[in-house]
Structure formats: structure tokens, C-alpha cells
Design a protein around this nucleic acid. Structure first.
Length: 136
DNA sequence: GCCAACGTTGGC
DNA sequence: GCCAACGTTGGC
């Protein structure tokens, strides 16, 4: 199983929106590094959902519920990808960015290293620690 | 509101 | 192919 983290601005699309809908197509990603991660997604993979902007906290969990497929919104000659994500839960304890920054064990999270990346992988050990910290 | 990081665009 | 200019993201 692989672990991922997706960022979203709650003002445009929030975890609550995902919860209400149950499953959502995660499209519109227009960054090559992010696409390369999406390419490796498999159904059943766990996805941490992070709210950027005012909240800047990890707020929930979702599950990859499809194989990656061509982004239907992409132009015909472009090879962008989308996946389906299914809502799992809100975290018992949302994890603020400040707490992540303050944790010596989480310093190699791509979230901290590449602030603009919107889809990224999470190391299994980091994922286990995150799950522990959020008691989910 | 500002700025750092970084991706993209276009002139050369 | 380089690089300056510009736009966007996201934290502060």
C-alpha cells in the first residue's frame, strides 16, 4: 500500500465537500511531479487530506478508489491524470502545519520541502507516525 | 499585504 | 538553450 497527501483550498474544495459527495474525481492537477505521483496510485491507497490557506492543517483521510486515468478536462494532446478519491473520515485530531514543523521526525515530509506541490507521496513510516499523532 | 519558491513564457 | 519577466501558490 502506498500513502499520499493531497492539498486543497477548502474555499474551493473541502474535505466536507468530499464527505458530502462520498466520492470525487480528483482532476485538474497540472504539475508534472504531481502527475508522476498520481501515476503510481492504486485503489486502496491511503490519502491524507490537507487544507491550505487559513486552516493549514491535515484534516482527514481518503482512499484512492480508482486507477489513474486520463484527466477528462485536459486538452487532447496533454497527458494529465485524474483519480477517484473516496471519503474515509475526518481526523480525530487535525494536525496543524505548525505541529508538523515542530516534529523532528516529520522533517522530510515533502509538504515541508515543496510548499507548492499539490499531490505528493508520504513515506510509510511517516504515514504511521501521522496516523498515530492524529489518533485516527 | 508581502514575500519566497517555483513553474511558465517569450525574447534573444 | 539561456534568462528575465511574470503569474501562482501558500505561509507568514
Amino acid at each position: 500500500m502506498n500513502y499520499w497527501l493531497v492539498k486543497t483550498e477548502p474555499e474551493s474544495y473541502s474535505l466536507e465537500d468530499l464527505e458530502a459527495k462520498g466520492e470525487e474525481i480528483w482532476d485538474g492537477v497540472r504539475n508534472y511531479q504531481a502527475r508522476n505521483f498520481m501515476e503510481k496510485m492504486n485503489p486502496g491507497d491511503l490519502v491524507f487530506v490537507y487544507h491550505s490557506g487559513k486552516q493549514k492543517s491535515m484534516v482527514g483521510l481518503a482512499e484512492v478508489s480508482s486507477a489513474p486515468f486520463p484527466d477528462p478536462k485536459a486538452k487532447e494532446d496533454e497527458k494529465w491524470l485524474a483519480v477517484h478519491l473516496t471519503y474515509m473520515q475526518h481526523l480525530v485530531n487535525p494536525l496543524p502545519l505548525a505541529a508538523i514543523k515542530a516534529s523532528p521526525d516529520l522533517q522530510n515530509l515533502l509538504l515541508l520541502k515543496q510548499s507548492r506541490l499539490s499531490v505528493m507521496s508520504v513515506d510509510p513510516l511517516d504515514a504511521a507516525l501521522l496516523l498515530k499523532m492524529t489518533r485516527s
